[in-house]
Simulated assay, not measured.
Amino acid sequence: MIATLEFVEILDKSELLAEMVLNSEVYEEFQNAKLAMDTDLEAQRLIREFAAVKEHYEDVQRFGRYHPDYSEIMKSVRVKKRAMDLNDKVATYKIAERKFQGLLDEISQYIAFSVSDQIKVPKDGAALTDHGCGHGGACGCNAS
């Protein structure tokens, strides 16, 4: 019975936390930036162009330098990505996305470390990657 009451209390607190995140300025900024990017015709054109050339890039990657279009596709991907990244709406969205991810990472770290400081926590959106221990280098690892 106690475990059930504790479980319900945890669920209530997690719902409260989720509500706080959804009402945060960081989330609102993220949503506004996403809406602005999604409704901007130029940004959407650049995103579509980058996605199209990226498909060719993935095909070329299977063969590497031996693919006849390797140099052309590699250059084209860099040019399209740069054009997309320099668009004001896309750049604003990416900044807002990083800030929001930082908030989520900070919350995850706070929750995990309240249980044990030995828990590995994803940092900088690096969930499921092998970039250090999640303690920000506090343990002496090479966290990047």
Results as ranks from 00 to 15, higher is better:
76 S>H: 06
75 K>V: 14
80 K>F: 03
106 E>F: 07
114 S>V: 05
24 S>H: 05
135 H>V: 08
127 A>K: 09
141 C>P: 07
130 D>K: 15
136 G>K: 06
77 V>E: 00
81 K>G: 01
66 Y>K: 15
78 R>F: 01
5 L>D: 11
97 E>H: 14
104 L>V: 06
122 P>G: 02
111 I>C: 05
106 E>S: 10
62 R>V: 09
119 I>G: 02
23 N>E: 14
17 L>E: 00
109 Q>C: 04
100 F>D: 03
68 P>C: 06
79 V>S: 01
28 E>I: 14
77 V>I: 11
2 I>A: 10
137 G>N: 04
1 M>H: 07
78 R>Y: 01
97 E>K: 15
125 G>I: 09
141 C>D: 05
90 V>R: 09
69 D>S: 13
125 G>A: 07
32 N>C: 10
87 N>C: 10
60 V>C: 05
4 T>M: 06
21 V>W: 03
27 Y>N: 06
101 Q>V: 14
78 R>W: 00
28 E>P: 08
143 A>L: 04
30 F>N: 07
141 C>L: 10
68 P>V: 04
139 C>D: 04
123 K>E: 03
80 K>T: 00
95 I>S: 07
72 E>A: 14
140 G>P: 06
32 N>Q: 11
88 D>A: 10
99 K>F: 00
116 S>M: 08
73 I>G: 04
94 K>R: 15
86 L>Q: 01
82 R>P: 00
41 L>F: 05
63 F>N: 13
86 L>H: 00
8 V>T: 13
118 Q>Y: 01
9 E>P: 00
86 L>K: 02
4 T>R: 13
51 A>K: 15
136 G>P: 07
114 S>Y: 01
17 L>T: 03
23 N>V: 03
88 D>S: 02
27 Y>M: 13
10 I>C: 04
55 E>Q: 14
88 D>P: 13
81 K>N: 02
83 A>C: 03
107 I>L: 11
47 I>S: 13
24 S>G: 05
128 L>H: 08
136 G>W: 02
68 P>E: 08
63 F>Q: 13
48 R>W: 07
142 N>I: 02
51 A>F: 09
60 V>I: 14
91 A>Q: 12
114 S>H: 08
138 A>R: 14
97 E>A: 15
84 M>C: 12
36 A>P: 01
141 C>R: 06
15 E>D: 04
120 K>D: 05
31 Q>C: 09
96 A>V: 09
86 L>P: 00
31 Q>Y: 02
80 K>A: 12
133 C>V: 14
81 K>F: 00
50 F>R: 15
64 G>E: 02
123 K>R: 14
79 V>W: 00
28 E>F: 10
51 A>C: 07
76 S>T: 11
62 R>T: 09
69 D>F: 04
132 G>N: 05
5 L>Q: 11
76 S>F: 04
129 T>G: 01
67 H>P: 10
61 Q>S: 07
5 L>T: 07
118 Q>L: 14
27 Y>R: 11
92 T>I: 05
